[in-house]
Structures are given as structure tokens and as C-alpha cells.
């Protein structure tokens, strides 16, 4: 299997390969000076490339097939995970993963969008938009958390899927609508983190929370840049311009006070150093969780409502 490499990562990957080659050679002759020099150049190049990423490039990082996904995070930063299944009405939609788990010893209910593996390439594909069964499962799990007084953590990774089957299943809108309503009024602390893509209602239905975080290279908006380009510019060719205009990256949302904080990623993106990413996110989630658990639930609910009431721009 060849590793998928983004075009702007290419020069760095080439240098890294060169360094690896020289290390191999270095076993026979002393190349430490040359290697050190090459490493310095690589570091500089990394800094230069990754501090000047366009929004479209960041979206490519957010969609990277090797980027850690919800299942990876559940495995690596939570313990004692037991997956819970089914909506108790019609079936189980595996595009939503959820269950009971602990993080830093704190019992929680954890939920996320689950990507599927492509059998041919063995790479992850974006998660499909959940069906009514998926949204109902999500609602069932957060209601369990509420009843049993456990906080909820959601890992959002929802691409824009255009949009629904030609004739949508009758109960879909109702299932989404209920999920949104329950998230806004859930009587237990809630913490969400956008780990990759955060498109439209599939993302929002897991992202209404007391604290909403975004990983540095993740994005969040009403539609994808591709969809915006088609709708407003009239052609997919304008997707990069659309990505710039929409300001959908974590930094943009923090500047607009739409999210509570950014979770930094290892240089080059989460997929360049999974282990480091797990450590950073775990630490951050535990800190935030401890913080929101301190609040009385009535106060937390009032703050959550008022947070959303204040969102938006107008003048009068």
C-alpha cells in the first residue's frame, strides 16, 4: 500500500525519505553532519509550509485518509469502552459509533461519526450521513447519559453528503429534529470536538454542547466548499475560493466566537503523529470535562442556551 500524500506535503516527505536513506548509509560511514543539516532544512521547510497553509489545504488535512478518526480516538484515549447498538425502533446504523467508556477515570458516554474502510485500498472513507436509525441511536445514548448522570463527549467527523436519497425516509427529519432538541436541553454536561469535517446538520446534531472544541485543521460550516462553489459560483472549479470565502477552519470559528477553543495538532497535522495527537486531545478533554462538571446543571443549561442565543450578527 502506498501512503496517500498531499501535494503540499510532497517536498517534506521527499526530504524525510532522503534522511532515512542517509541514516541507513550512516551505519557504514559518518554522515551525522549532513543528516543534521538536512534535518534542519526539513524543520524549516515544515514550519514554512505549515504556517502558510491555505484553508483549502487545511481541509485536505481534515480529510486525510490516515487522519485519526473517532474509532482511533475511542481506542486510544478512552478506556473500558463498551459499544451500545440500535435505536430500539428499526435497526442499528453503524455510521454512528457510541457507548459507555471512561476517560482519565471519569465515566462518560462517547459518541461519534464512524468512517468505513474501503476494502480495495484499505483506507478510510468519509462517514455517510446517518440514517434515522443513526440519529435515534445517538438520542438514545445521550438520554442514557442524562438519566444516569454521566457527561457526554462527541467526536464530530461529518462530511457534506449531497444530500439525502432522492426520496428521504419519512422519519429522518423528525429523528434529526429530536436529536437537536435533546442536545440543546440535555441535563448533563456535554463536550464536543470536531476532529475532521463538520458539515451541516450531521455535524451540528452532535456538536451542540456546553463546550465545542475544534482540532486545528478541522472545518465546520453549513455546506462543503464544493457545494458552495457549485451553488454560488456555478462550478466546482471555485472550491478553493469558496473555502477561503467561507472561513470554515477552527481559527476562523474561534475568531467569530462560534467555538470555545482550538485543540492544537502536531506539526503537519494529526496524521503525522497520531500518538502525540492522542495525548494532546486526551489532556484537553479531561481538563474541559473537569471544568464543566463543576457547574450546577441548571446553571450549565442556562449558559448553554444563552451561548446559542447570542450567536449571529445583525444591526439595528
Amino acid at each position: 500500500m502506498t501512503k496517500p500524500i498531499l501535494d503540499f506535503e510532497q517536498p517534506i516527505v521527499q526530504l524525510e525519505e532522503k534522511i532515512a536513506e542517509m541514516r541507513e548509509l550512516g551505519k557504514a560511514i559518518d554522515l551525522s553532519k549532513e543528516i543534521a543539516e538536512l534535518e534542519r532544512r526539513t524543520d524549516n521547510l515544515r514550519k514554512e509550509i505549515y504556517s502558510n497553509l491555505t484553508r483549502w489545504q487545511r481541509i485536505q488535512i481534515a480529510r486525510h485518509p490516515l487522519r485519526p478518526n473517532s474509532v482511533d480516538y475511542i481506542k486510544n484515549i478512552f478506556t473500558d469502552f463498551i459499544e451500545l447498538s440500535g435505536d430500539r425502533v428499526a435497526g442499528d446504523d453503524t455510521s454512528i459509533i457510541g457507548g459507555i467508556a471512561k476517560i482519565g477515570g471519569i465515566p462518560v458516554v462517547v459518541l461519534g461519526n464512524r468512517k468505513t474502510k474501503d476494502k480495495k485500498t484499505n483506507l478510510y472513507k468519509p462517514a455517510p450521513i446517518p440514517s434515522a436509525e443513526g440519529f435515534r441511536k445517538a438520542t438514545r445514548l445521550i438520554k442514557i447519559a442524562e438519566r444516569l448522570a454521566k457527561p457526554v463527549i462527541t467526536l464530530v467527523d461529518a462530511p457534506y453528503n449531497v444530500p439525502y436519497p432522492e426520496i428521504e425516509s419519512p422519519g429522518l427529519a423528525n429523528a434529526i429534529s429530536n436529536q437537536l432538541a435533546e442536545m440543546t436541553a440535555l441535563r448533563t454536561p456535554t463536550l464536543s470536538v470536531v476532529i475532521g469535517e463538520g458539515a451541516s446538520i450531521a455535524a451540528l446534531s452532535l456538536a451542540i454542547a456546553d463546550r465545542l472544541l475544534m482540532l486545528e485543521n478541522s472545518w465546520f460550516s453549513i455546506v462543503s466548499p464544493e457545494k458552495a462553489a457549485e451553488t454560488l459560483w456555478g462550478s466546482l472549479d471555485f472550491k478553493e475560493q469558496a473555502a477561503e470565502a467561507m472561513k470554515p477552519i477552527a481559527r476562523d470559528l474561534l475568531d467569530l466566537s462560534l467555538i470555545d477553543d482550538i485543540v492544537p495538532e502536531p506539526i503537519g497535522g494529526a496524521h503525522r503523529n497520531n500518538k502525540m495527537m492522542f495525548e494532546i486531545l486526551k489532556k484537553k478533554l479531561i481538563a474541559e470535562l473537569k471544568d464543566i462538571r463543576r457547574e450546577k446543571i441548571e446553571r450549565l443549561l442556562k449558559k448553554r442556551r444563552e451561548k446559542y442565543y447570542a450567536k449571529g450578527v445583525w444591526r439595528e
Binding site: M183, A203, L204, F220, T231, L232, K311, G312
Partner: peptide, 23 residues
């Protein structure tokens, strides 16, 4: 249609109105 021109702000509005309807 969606108000694409307001990007993430317009997505957050769904949470705002849902909260209000809940109240």
C-alpha cells in the same frame, strides 16, 4: 435554501432556534 454566505454562523442558528423552541 441555506444561507451559505453566512457559513458556520448560519449553521449555528439551527442550535439557536432549537433552543428557543425548547424553551
Amino acid at each position: 435554501g441555506n444561507r451559505i454566505q453566512e457559513s458556520a454562523i448560519s449553521l449555528m442558528q439551527i442550535a439557536k432556534l432549537t433552543s428557543a423552541v425548547n424553551e
